[in-house]
């Protein structure tokens, strides 16, 4: 119904229950209901990647998922990945390389970067560029981001840079 619908899910390891309108997308749910404003909204039509979060371990566009579809799901946002320390090395690499300027794309970019580091730990620059090609960054020109992800990949696989 168009009336609020109850949902229960896990967000960054915490159980969350809420009443949401069916039309509310996951990005707005995270931002407006839970105050998790690290998930950014850049286009609301699934192109820019700023709202990228993890749902059940997979990166998705939070603007292209309804909050009601996240029933029983495990959602992880940039706040969760930061607090757990999962991407602290990647964040350090971004900092060292100045791989962010305005920072608006960065949470989504880190999500996408961690995804390739998980699934393709040996990725080369071209594969990194391709994997990040759904995440729009207007500031950096991408070179520094690719450097930071590549450096993290090398460090994690124990190779010298």
């Amino acid at each position: 119904m168009t009336n609020p619908t109850p949902i229960s899910l896990t967000v960054n390891g915490e159980s969350v229950s809420a009443q949401v309108l069916p039309r509310l997308n996951l990005a707005d749910f995270l931002r407006e209901h839970l105050g998790l404003t690290g998930t950014h909204v850049g286009c609301e039509h699934g192109v820019c990647g700023a709202c990228t979060v993890r749902v059940n371990g997979d990166i998705v566009r939070a603007c292209l998922l309804l909050a009601v579809q996240a029933e029983d799901a495990s959602v992880e946002t940039i706040e969760g990945l930061s607090d757990s320390g999962e991407i602290s090395d990647l964040q350090a690499a971004f900092q060292n390389r100045n791989a962010l300027q305005c920072g608006y794309c960065t949470p989504g970019m880190l999500m996408a970067a961690q995804d390739i580091l998980t699934h393709e730990p040996q990725a080369d620059r071209e594969q990194i560029r391709e994997h990040l090609s759904g995440n729009y960054c207007r500031c950096t020109g991408y070179h520094a981001i690719v450097d930071a992800v590549e450096a993290t990949a090398r460090a994690r696989s124990g190779q010298a840079r």
Binding site: T37, Q91, G103
Partner: peptide, 19 residues
């Protein structure tokens, strides 16, 4: 030298007007 304000932006703790 690294920019001092990067930590909050990387952790989703920046504050944009839209937030």
């Amino acid at each position: 030298v690294p920019r001092p304000n990067l930590g909050r932006l990387m952790q989703g703790r920046g504050q944009y007007v839209s937030d």
